[in-house]
Amino acid sequence: MSIPKAVSIGLAGNELSKVITGTSDVSAGRTAVATGLGALIGGGAAGSLTVGAAAVGIAAAPITVPLAVAGGAIAFIASLFD
């Protein structure tokens, strides 16, 4: 996991939450959407959304979990300060 990648993923999740909710106002709903999208994008960027053998999931876990968590956390924080 690289910090710049996690930051860009989190900010992308925040921006997508604005499009989905139709507002840039700070709210619990938009924060929840931003956090979920940041984690989803982080998981996808690390390759965890690929459906495959269990060995692939286990091998991707050390990268996937931190990137998904970091992406979600940064999206959460970014959505509170827009």
Rank of each mutant, 00 (worst) to 15 (best):
A73H: 12
I20E: 01
A61Q: 14
I77P: 09
L37Q: 08
S24K: 10
F76Y: 15
L37F: 08
A73E: 08
A78C: 00
V69M: 14
P62E: 02
A12E: 00
T23N: 00
G72R: 06
A59D: 10
I20G: 00
I77T: 15
L49V: 06
K18H: 11
R30A: 13
G36I: 09
G71R: 02
L16H: 02
E15P: 01
I77E: 02
L40T: 04
L11W: 02
G43R: 06
L16A: 08
V56K: 11
R30E: 14
G13S: 00
S48L: 08
A32L: 15
G42E: 11
V19N: 07
A46H: 03
L40V: 08
A73W: 14
G44S: 08
S79F: 09
V65A: 15
S48N: 09
F76W: 15
G72F: 04
A68P: 04
G57A: 11
A32R: 13
A54S: 03
K18V: 14
V26Y: 07
S48H: 08
A55K: 10
G72T: 10
G71S: 09
L49W: 14
G72V: 07
V56Q: 12
F76C: 13
G57M: 05
T21A: 02
A28N: 14
A53S: 09
I74T: 01
